[in-house]
Amino acid sequence: MNCRRALKALPEILDDGGSDALRAAVEEHLHGCPACRREREALSRSWELLDAVRAPAAGPQFTAAVMTRVRASDTRGALPRRATAGPGIRSWWLAPAGAMALVALLVVSALVTWTHRPPGRPPTPAVVAALPSEPGRMPTDEDIIRDLDVYEQLDVLDNLWLLADLEVLEDSEVEL
């Protein structure tokens, strides 16, 4: 048996002994292999360390507490929730109250959205882009293509005075 097979067999042998033939083969290998012997020691020690995890003893009222809940369940016809849980969600008034609250919330949300809507057509991306106080809102390519005529008009407006000056200059040159 080589190291690879011995290492593979070790957990099984440590867990339930494995078959006689397997155990004998592994023991023979371990006899002449210090590295695999160390590995067996490591597996054993790590397994034994788990003994340190101890659970506390059940409290003296454990059985009584369970039986109280069991009797209560038989009386009510349904198992109660854990003692640590809050009041039952199936209280008779809670379901309609919750529904009414939800409807009220929806109505208020709709009103707020309606009253705070921007007047008229929403601002075009060109206008939005011109606003300095809106970081993070950049016009998309689709916005730009859709409002291309607006952009062109804005360009014309930006150069309006220049165009006018140029026109005057050209006219004067013609006169000269």
């Binding site: 957990p11 440590l14 867990d15 160390r38 020691e41 490591a42 597996l43 020690r45 790590s46 397994w47 360390l49 788990l50």
Partner: peptide
């Protein structure tokens, strides 16, 4: 077993 051996190697100085 293999995972535990690896997890506890440093603590138990197993190499």
């Amino acid at each position: 077993r293999v995972t535990l051996r690896r997890e506890l190697a440093e603590y138990l100085e197993l190499g």
